[in-house]
């Protein structure tokens, strides 16, 4: 599904990613854990194609295609979905308008017919109900005035509507209390399937209790410094990241 080879990337002229190698096959969930400042969010933004994140070396193949040559929206239309650490508030754009525009953009790119207003509302209401997202959130402006938990559930709703193939969860657990975390993580876990893959970026192990990973990678100093099974996450919880930060420095 995703093959990252020797990926180097700069932000504001400073190298943050210093040669990442990572392969995630379809059907698997990989976790990337690491201390603050290790490059976790940079990795997610580079994969999603954010302006200002410059790839200086390496390659990324996504479903057999050169991911880095694609625009942000083309990546999304090909099924790449980044769940934001801090979902952006967009006053003035209603949820229905935003979600319908996005769903139809993705449907067009897949050669499917666009949904009209009624068809879309029906679909959105059903998915919202499944995820425990209140219907009034569809009418409100995107993320505007939402609580931390509401924002993350809204990300899960977008995931459910856009039906991506590859999901990147960028510190989805941040800003959530235990109950909200469980609701969101269980929703995300329900998207697991043999045709999909997931990259869970996190500082803490707790989200991995709900989304159990096939592999865990430790990112420190812009490189993957260790790879293991799900038990590695538990181990890190007790040992911390100090050993890796010293190693990277």
């Amino acid at each position: 599904m995703l093959e990252i080879r020797n990926l180097h990337a700069c932000v504001d002229g400073r190298e943050i990613l210093k040669g990442i190698d990572l392969t995630i096959p379809a059907g698997e969930v990989h976790a990337v854990m690491g201390p603050n400042g290790s490059g976790k969010s940079t990795l997610s933004y580079v994969l999603a194609g954010r302006d200002g994140y410059k790839v200086t070396e390496g390659s990324v193949l996504y479903r057999g295609q050169d991911l880095l040559a694609m625009k942000t929206e083309e990546r999304a239309c090909l099924g790449l979905f980044l769940a934001f650490q801090n979902p952006v508030e967009i006053p003035g754009v209603t949820g229905v308008n935003f979600l319908k525009t996005a769903v139809n953009a993705v449907r067009r790119s897949r050669g499917q017919s666009e949904l009209d207003a009624m068809q879309f509302l029906k679909l959105a209401r059903r998915k919202a109900k499944e995820l425990g997202v209140g219907e009034e959130m569809l009418r409100r402006a995107v993320n505007t005035g939402f609580s931390g938990g509401e924002k993350k559930r809204y990300e899960a709703l977008q995931m459910a509507l856009l039906e991506p193939k590859f999901m990147i969860l960028d510190e989805t657990d941040s800003g959530l209390d235990i109950d909200a975390l469980r609701v969101v993580a269980e929703a995300v876990d329900s998207f697991r399937s043999p045709e999909r893959a997931m990259l869970v970026i996190t500082h803490y192990q707790r989200i991995l209790d709900y989304i159990v990973p096939d592999k865990v990678h430790v990112l420190a100093g812009g490189r993957i410094v260790q790879t293991g099974g799900k038990e590695l996450a538990v181990e890190l919880e007790s040992t911390g990241y100090a050993q890796f930060t010293e190693q990277a420095a």
Partner: peptide
């Protein structure tokens, strides 16, 4: 707002 623009594009909406 570039952040909002990126958010919308990351959902498949063209620039």
């Amino acid at each position: 707002d570039e952040t909002a623009l990126f958010y919308l594009r990351a959902r498949g909406i063209d620039a």
